[in-house]
Design a binder for these strands. Structure first.
Lengths: 226, 226
DNA sequence: TTCATAGTTCGATGCTAATCGAAGCATTGA
DNA sequence: TCAATGCTTCGATTAGCATCGAACTATGAA
């Protein structure tokens, strides 16, 4: 008999198109209701309910009851990690969904990865901050330099507040479309929040796309390439 | 319509018990023949052939023809990464098939997990490095401390060379015989290579067992418990 | 109370895929 | 040439499961 963790059981849960669509939608970081997830997956509420029951039993998602809604979130960061790795593989071997809609180019350019910026602009942000020596990447991972700390404070980010949380400040996250690192962690999330607040960009509803205004994109370019 | 990489297709390939068994066996890093993989998976050669054809079409494994054998290997380090992440999730949510660990005591003591050390000694290595504060583990994973970087350089490991690769330097890999973490990633692999080079240990052919010499084991104990 | 919405359960259906026996190639060795 | 081994293809069987219509429960609003 085989020993060890039963990866087939977990992988099978991620291996159904409808469930994969739901989980991908949850990577936006928002909690979604059962009905919303049904729409995301393109199935009826009954089918979605069956899938969600399976995902819940397998502890892939966590439900939270609120009024007559049930909101679902991913059960942990390891799920996000697994989905990202699988996306990387699917991308490498060319398993892309055949019908690449009009959204695809926008998605590759700038999208939200859980709560931080990914896509070409996410990678550009990471590289730009590194080139300006605001972040520094050593064997431990990424960290803010002293200059980076000054920058963050000047940019309106409450670093002390972020540090109080358990979550790491900076973290690399591999981008499936660009195949390079972008900036994750609470600092990465805070940066994206500031972009929203400054009006540089906004979320396109019902998708993971982050759309920059012309002026916002110019400001962004100035930021990373002064 | 949905956009992005088709993770369901990849996940479904990993989501069948027979295929998952084969892939887990290939994590030993050795190339295995179709018949060997059939035995590992506990299915007949015909069934295994069908599975291998699917895995090959999905570019999860790579075949290499040699005489009248076909040797299979995993198609890339990202596959290993995916399997490791899935193992971590499966363990976290308690999806274990485990009743008993590896029966062979030697296998339980020290074996290779793809390319790094697993088993009791793998766990001891992880704990020892942590106790010496050479590695540090936070919510997002493991990382080398500054002292760890010095140690690695002094131990003959080319960290800059390792970092040039896309593969993560440090990663926790859950040990299913000891049920604790051992050290994976390129640094974990480099450590095991050094053990071989230093003559501390060698691979037992035709198995995943790593056999330490008496002197080698003593040096290993000194390393992790100075 | 009555109606509307959110979500689930049940049952039927239909499709996919895993499995293995039997037979067929292909390579190697005698 | 013949036999043995490694592996694949074919065909039939089976089981699981995704799907949805219909009916049911629960919450909230009028």
């Amino acid at each position: 008999m085989k020993e060890g963790p039963d990866i087939a059981r977990v992988a099978a849960l991620l291996g159904d198109p409808a469930r994969a669509n739901m989980l991908t939608a949850l990577m936006s970081g928002r909690a979604l209701t059962a009905t919303e997830l049904a729409q995301e997956a393109g199935v009826t509420p009954q089918t979605a309910s069956s899938h969600l029951a399976k995902l819940e039993a397998g502890q892939i998602v966590k439900p939270r009851k609120e009024g007559r809604h049930r909101y679902f979130t991913l059960s942990g960061p390891d799920i996000v990690e697994a989905l990202e790795v699988l996306m990387g593989i699917a991308n490498r071997v060319g398993h892309n969904r055949v019908r690449t809609g009009p959204k695809d180019p926008e998605l590759r350019k700038a999208r939200v990865c859980y709560d931080h910026l990914a896509g070409d602009m996410g990678v550009a942000l990471f590289d730009g901050l590194a080139k300006r020596k605001l972040i520094e990447s050593d064997v431990n991972g990424v960290a803010l330099t002293p200059a980076g700390i000054d920058f963050a404070n000047g940019f309106g980010i409450d670093l002390d507040g972020l540090r109080a949380k358990r979550r790491p400040l900076c973290r690399e996250c591999l981008d499936w479309s660009a195949r390079q690192s972008h900036l994750a962690g609470s600092f990465g999330a805070a940066l994206l929040d500031r972009f929203y607040d400054l009006g540089w960009a906004r979320r396109v509803p019902e998708s993971r796309i982050v759309r920059f205004s012309d002026a916002g994109e110019q400001s962004f370019r100035d930021l990373i390439n002064p």
